[in-house]
């Protein structure tokens, strides 16, 4: 968690920054004039907490998107550090290379070994480049699948932490089959014999998110988003301009509240007031009991039932009208013996 003076503020967080500045002024003045301003400072600190709560209670969808991308927001490895012990990071897809945008490894969740996998973003310019802004290449998805298969072999539950603006749209990514890599993951995750719990901890954009997003349980943190395309790209395609991202965010109904009401996710995990970036311990501490509970429930089921329920869970998603239709005479005959496989 950044020190207060190193904090970064989004536009709508400006009132908080102002309060921080007021505190700094008071502190300086207390120092200079040798007076005790502890009470006033404490009052301002209380105001900050209230302001944080106030701001997160009335976020627009676009502001939620911005918060999910907050430069101080905890990323996958931070959650791993705060929730698990004995994390042993495993690298590489055994094929092309190690994708730094996708991390994973064995870890212990209060004694239960799990395989934890997630997209990783960087917290400064250099690291952001190294992590490719959390945009995995095909080898990242194949690395994730390799680790999931390893977990399956040793009967360990899989936890995925999703935080990506999308799978990387690069030339080499296409050469190495970005679509195929994601498709394969979706398919294999559906059939994974061990419990799978997925959590959207920040950005959940499109196939890049879904590529590690097929779980028996899918959770979203309070200030995350999940949909088929980023609001910016949606704006550029449907509005033919980059300027309508706020409208796009609204129309896409990408917030956890919406996703929960649609039945597309199972739970919303509350964040510290003001967002996860205000208290990493609290953010991870909020999530951990839900992970443990889900894993405990899922381990109680037999693998075949779990897989059937997982397929069923996703197969009821969608909305459509069903009109009455007159029955036609079928041309193909039933139980044709020539078509037995």
């Amino acid at each position: 968690m950044p020190q207060d003076k190193n904090r970064q503020f989004l536009d709508f967080e400006k009132p908080i920054r102002d309060l921080f500045e007021d505190i700094e002024k008071l502190k300086a003045s207390a120092e200079k004039n040798k007076v005790d301003l502890t009470d006033s400072i404490r009052k301002l600190e209380q105001q900050i907490v209230e302001k944080r709560r106030e701001i997160t209670s009335q976020l627009t969808p676009w502001q939620k998107v911005q918060l999910s991308r907050h430069p101080d927001r905890p990323y996958t490895k931070k959650y791993i550090e705060k929730m698990f012990t004995d994390f042993v990071e495993l690298f590489g897809d055994r094929n092309v290379r190690d994708d730094k945008a996708m991390v994973g490894g064995f870890a212990s969740l209060d004694g239960q070994t799990v395989m934890v996998i997630g997209q990783q973003k960087g917290s400064n310019t250099k690291m952001r480049q190294l992590r490719n802004f959390g945009m995995a290449n095909p080898e990242g998805y194949r690395k994730a699948l390799r680790l999931m298969k390893l977990a399956e072999k040793f009967n360990k539950p899989v936890v995925t932490l999703i935080d990506t603006p999308g799978a990387y749209p690069g030339l080499e990514a296409e050469e190495r089959g970005q679509g195929e890599a994601i498709a394969r993951n979706i398919y294999e995750m559906m059939r994974l014999k061990v419990p799978v719990v997925c959590v959207i901890i920040g950005e959940g954009a499109s196939g890049g998110a879904l590529g590690i997003g097929i779980g028996d349980r899918v959770f979203m943190l309070e200030n995350s988003w999940y949909t088929v395309i980023s609001p910016e790209n949606c704006s550029s395609i449907l509005w033919r301009s980059w300027e309508q991202k706020e409208k796009a965010a609204e129309q896409l109904k990408l917030t956890p509240d919406n996703m929960y009401s649609f039945g597309l996710i199972d739970k919303i995990i509350p964040e510290p007031s003001g967002g996860a970036h205000w208290n990493y311990d609290e953010a991870a501490g909020n999530l951990k009991p839900h992970l443990k509970e889900a894993i405990r429930e899922l381990l109680a089921m037999d693998p075949q039932t779990r897989i059937e329920k997982r397929i069923e869970k996703f197969s009821v998603m969608g909305f459509w009208d069903e009109m009455p239709e007159p029955k036609q005479e079928p041309v193909t005959q039933e139980n044709d013996q020539s078509n037995q496989y």
Partner: peptide, 10 residues
């Protein structure tokens, strides 16, 4: 929106 994304899974 997300409903279309979930068709991949479905």
């Amino acid at each position: 929106s997300a409903f279309s994304l979930m068709q991949l899974a479905k």
